[in-house]
Every structure is written in structure tokens, then in C-alpha cells.
Amino acid sequence: MLIDLHSRAEEDLSYIRKAMARAEGMSTVSGRASMVMGCLALITGGLAFMADDLEGQLKFWLYVAPIAAVIGIIGSALKSRGSDAKPLRDPASRFLLCLVPPISIAAITTHALWGSPYVYLLPGLWMLCYGCGLLAAGTYAVRPVAIMGACFLMLGGVATTLTDDWMNAAMSFSFGFLHIIFGWQLVRHHGG
């Protein structure tokens, strides 16, 4: 009986902690910012089609990536403020902590492989790393974030098998449409 009470109490505390962490994450991810990032990705994809080769196309994406990151951060800060939660505090920092390591790996690998014959792997790598980050960050956020991460992982896996001609289309589809679709979900069901 004592052991039952003990484990029940521990389970209760663990449940409370998880529920609180998830609720904190509710106000972390901005659907509107995600949709803006998606639109930006579609525009970037359109512009990148003008480049002659894959490296040229990737340059467009690399220039836009920091802008998209800033949009995401500002969107999260605004959403947190709107819901009376503390902006850019615990939930947002946990979310960022999940995203930063895989994105750093993608950035470092991009630097290492630039100019090599393996550049064709980079779009898939970026999708896989971003997907990993979102999947991990989904632990602290609402379910669509983790599902979006899983979609990025799947598309990243597919992208590693594509030829150079399809890479820009794969990046546009994943970073564009996935952000817009899941951003819309967040706006509709999770408070903006």
C-alpha cells in the first residue's frame, strides 16, 4: 500500500510537471510567424530558380535563413506577450535550445562541404536537422510542432535521394508549404 501511494504520488507530480511544461509551450510558437516564414521560403524558392547551379540556389536560402529565424523569434516574443506569459523566458529558451544544436550541425556541415562534390546532400541535411530540432522542441510545444518536425524528417530523407534539379523544389515545398500549413493550424487552434 505504501509503495502504491508512493508511486501514485510520484506519477501525479510527474503528470503535473509535464502538463505545466506543455501549457507553457502553448504560447511559445507563433503560427503567424510560421506562415510568414513559409511565404518567405516560397519567394526565396522562386528567386533561387534563377540561379544556374545548386550552390547558387543554396546561397539564396542561406541569405534568407537568418531573416526567417529573426521572424520566428519576434513572432514568439509577440505571441508570448499577447497571452500574458513571460516573453522569451523558460518555454521559449527550451524551444530554442532544442533547435540550436541541429541547426548548428547543419551550418557547420554546410561550411565544411561547400565547394565539394557532396553539396547535393545539403538541402536534405538542412531539412533533416530542422526536422530533428522541431521534433525535439515539440516536447515543449503543441503537437503540430512535432508533427511538422516529423514531416521535415521524411521530406529530408526523400531529398537526399533527389537529383540537383529537384533540390530547390524540395526546399520550397518543405520550408514553404509545411510552415504555412502548420502555421495555419497553430493560428486556428492554438491562439495565433
Binding site: Y15, M20, E24, M26, S83, A85, R143, H189, G191
Partner: peptide, 21 residues
């Protein structure tokens, strides 16, 4: 218990947010 825990860290939550959480 989950309802109270979620609302303890977020001032206001909508019905759909709580349903999803």
C-alpha cells in the same frame, strides 16, 4: 488535475488549447 496544472502556468487558455494539451 491537468486542467489546473495547465492553467497554473498560463493565465488564460482556450477550450481548444486545453483539449489539445
Amino acid at each position: 488535475l491537468g486542467l489546473l496544472s495547465c492553467l497554473a502556468v498560463s493565465d488564460r487558455l482556450s477550450f481548444s488549447e486545453l483539449k489539445s494539451l
